[in-house]
């Protein structure tokens, strides 16, 4: 998994997160609270992963593996073709299973698909449904915890990138993103990587907008 790298270009003064970063074992509440990415011990709540503490007391993880959830839409690829279905790499701890009945199309090894998670059981076995093949594009890997930031509020971020570059973009909750070849795919991928790297810094939408505008006026590289 490629990891975020903090770009050198951002303005340091706008960065106010410094004291908000919490580490595993750091107390986040002096009473027992059931929160994601936390654990309770002796009536106190502690963080369990490296994360940002938001103002409402919730934790936003800065890194971490993808945890499959019911009804997540994922971008994934076929890793193994079996007799009655497919083993699909969803960037999780284990492969997901897509039954042949769940898809009208016949898949081949390496096909990139966009699918919905149909079930997750107690040992985190994942089954997919509603799969469709994505053809003629590029698959890029990002950190799954950065996906909400890449999508933006009501698709604002990804919509902006999509319209500015003319690319069709499918974002999976699992951290895989598919970008169509038509349009300026190079710029789209570069911008997504930039969002990923700066996901924890505020004022991101404006910076990305400025970046896209500056690239639009410059002649396209290819």
């Amino acid at each position: 998994m490629s990891k975020p790298k903090v770009c050198e270009s951002y303005d340091r003064r706008s960065f106010k997160m410094k004291n908000n970063i919490v580490l595993p074992g750091q107390m986040v509440a002096d009473r027992p609270v059931r929160l994601p990415y936390c654990y309770v011990e002796k009536n106190k709540t502690y963080a369990s992963v490296l994360s940002l503490l938001s103002e409402d007391g919730r934790l936003v993880p800065l890194c971490g593996p993808y945890e499959p959830m019911l009804d997540d839409y994922v971008v994934a690829y076929v890793q193994e073709v079996r007799f009655s279905g497919y083993n699909i790499n969803i960037n999780g701890a284990a492969n997901a299973y897509l039954s042949g009945r769940e898809t009208a199309q016949k898949l081949q090894l390496g096909d990139v698909i966009y699918a919905r998670i149909n079930s997750v059981d107690e040992v985190k076995s994942v089954e997919l449904t509603d799969a469709r093949i994505l053809r003629g594009g590029k698959l890029i890997e990002t950190d799954a915890v950065k996906i909400p930031r890449i999508i933006g509020k009501k698709n604002s971020m990804i919509g902006m990138i999509s319209t500015a570059t003319g690319c069709e973009i499918y974002v999976g909750r699992n951290g895989y993103i598919w970008v169509s070849e038509k349009g300026n795919a190079k710029l789209a991928i570069e911008t997504i990587k930039m969002v990923e790297a700066q996901a924890h810094i505020s004022g991101l939408t404006d910076r990305i907008k400025a970046h896209l505008d500056s690239q639009k006026t410059a002649p396209a590289a290819n």
């Binding site: 580490l23 595993p24 074992g25 990415y37 502690y46 992963v49 490296l50 890194c63 971490g64 593996p65």
Partner: peptide, 11 residues
Amino acid sequence: LADAGIPMKDL
């Protein structure tokens, strides 16, 4: 481990 985002009780 912390950099990998693995949930831990302490560093």
